[in-house]
């Protein structure tokens, strides 16, 4: 998992695919907002790490689609939904 420095808005975890255009838009939005977050590119993982990560994503989003953004272990936003993401982060 890669850490991106920024303003602390609590735990923010982005599960993404390195090849996905919508995931990239979501990552760019988080960068523009300047919040601190962790990002995991699930397609870059292999074997057990990949399986474990898929299970973790499925806890929040049963379809394990991407991007899945989990904010403060409370809110899960699936897809690049700009307004919902801003609201959940309080920015």
């Amino acid at each position: 998992m890669e850490h991106v420095d920024g303003i602390d808005k609590g735990k923010v975890v982005l599960y993404a695919l390195s090849t996905c255009g919508w995931c990239k838009k979501t990552k760019n939005l988080l960068n523009e907002l300047g919040v601190a977050y962790e990002v995991e590119f699930v397609d870059k993982l292999a074997g057990e790490a990949r399986e474990a990560c898929i299970k973790e994503v499925a806890k929040w989003n049963e379809r394990t689609s991407f991007p899945t953004l989990v904010i403060r272990d409370e809110i899960c936003i699936v897809g690049f939904k700009e307004e919902e993401i801003k609201e959940a982060l309080g920015v």
């Binding site: 695919l17 090849t19 996905c20 255009g21 919508w22 995931c23 699930v42 397609d43 394990t64 991407f66």
Partner: peptide, 23 residues
């Protein structure tokens, strides 16, 4: 960007898996 993703998936998996889905 999506085409680049398709070409990466071709290298990774051997076929054009959707870049926005986990193959």
């Amino acid at each position: 960007e999506l085409i680049e993703g398709l070409l990466i998936n071709e290298e990774t998996y051997g076929y054009w898996a959707c870049p926005c889905r986990l193959a």
